[in-house]
Amino acid sequence: MAIDRKEVEAVAHLARLSIDETQIERTTESLQGILGMIDQMQAIDTKGIEPMAHPLDAVQRLRADEVTETDQREKLQQHAPATEEGLFLVPKVIE
């Protein structure tokens, strides 16, 4: 499964990364190398094997529904890139 330049651009967009025009070839090549190594996985038949998402066989612990967090806005926004009236500012959101 070789990845091509167009796919690299599409994946970069999904990941919201911009790849410099001059770097696309190089990036594509390095991804091809990595995916080539990854393709070793296809050598083994894994049919019927339950995928393992966590190393340990544990179950989710539940939290009591109690308010434990108080207003920390000032502290949490202290180093935010842009705020006004307690809001985080971003370029206009168009729906």
Partner: peptide
């Protein structure tokens, strides 16, 4: 929520 009132031409985010 994104608030679309104008904040210096930007949107405000309330989480």
């Amino acid at each position: 929520k994104s608030l679309h009132e104008d904040f210096q031409g930007m949107s405000g985010i309330d989480l």
